[in-house]
């Protein structure tokens, strides 16, 4: 059993690593956005922290949101649609190993994105923080990709392989906007500010900004609570789609 779990995780990583084009494209976007908005347009301060730090928080949130959504939803919908998942489900594969492999894959990408953004921020962005603060921020961001892994799982079961990239963007782009990742939440209309409170990306971004030293973004504990609550809701949805898929026919 433990061997099966370990093998599953290993194979997930190996197969991802051998698809560099796919991996690089997932990594490139948050870095590119950070260069544009955090480094080139780095004017002034916001809520007590410099733009290079503020945008680091929002772009890292975007990175740890998109990577698992793309990775899990895209990967799972493809495996299901093409019948591969059926072969695995017909076998005595322990589902826990498969879940863990997908989650580890998603979180590893998140970790790489966060690390790359930190390097950019510390070098070109001139961001200075005590080591403990870097550590807390990095840890929070990587752990913060968990709800997106679960959401990616749900989406992977709701969309078909062909529609996956478009559907993921349809979910992720509005979520990024409403969560204040592109324009700070306080500049958004009130109605959207209300919606933001129900979005994991909002809470993760706010929590990171607080950890990075910004003021007026709520306590870390309140955001952690919200993120855990949302994760539980997504997990309940994940359980439903996984169960429902048992006994479902796919095309072909």
């Amino acid at each position: 059993m433990t061997r099966a779990i370990w093998m599953e995780i290993r194979c997930e990583f190996l197969s991802r690593l051998r698809m560099p084009r796919y991996s690089v494209s997932i990594l490139a976007f948050p870095l590119m956005f950070y260069v544009f908005f955090g480094l080139i347009l780095h004017n002034g301060k916001l809520d007590g922290i410099g733009a290079a730090v503020y945008v680091l928080c929002t772009m890292a949130t975007m990175g740890v949101m998109f990577a698992p959504l793309m990775g899990l939803a895209g990967g799972i919908s493809a495996e299901r649609g093409l019948g591969w998942m059926e072969v695995k489900r017909a076998s005595p594969m322990p589902p826990i190993g498969w879940f863990l492999a997908k989650f580890c894959g998603g979180m590893a990408f998140s970790a790489i994105i966060v690390a790359a953004l930190f390097v950019l921020a510390a070098t070109l962005g001139g961001v200075r923080m005590p080591a403990a603060q870097w550590g807390a921020l990095g840890g929070a961001l990587i752990a913060g990709s968990i709800p997106f892994c679960v959401l990616g799982f749900v989406l992977g079961y709701l969309v078909t392989a062909n529609a996956a990239p478009a559907m993921i963007n349809l979910v992720a782009m509005p979520m990024a906007f409403c969560s204040g990742l592109w324009v700070p939440v306080q500049f958004l209309p009130h109605a959207i500010q209300g919606i933001a409170h129900f979005l994991p990306a909002y809470h993760l971004a706010e929590m990171s900004e607080t950890l990075a030293g910004a003021t007026g973004h709520g306590s870390v504990a309140s955001h952690v609570q919200a993120l855990i609550g949302l994760t539980i809701i997504f997990a309940a949805a994940a359980r439903i789609v996984w169960r429902r898929d048992e006994g479902r026919v796919h095309a072909g």
Binding site: S15, A78, E79, W84, A90
Partner: peptide, 14 residues
């Protein structure tokens, strides 16, 4: 049981 099903595609990078 061992099963061999009609599969559209199998992960190709393994």
């Amino acid at each position: 049981i061992g099963a061999m099903l009609q599969v559209g595609r199998v992960p190709e990078t393994l």
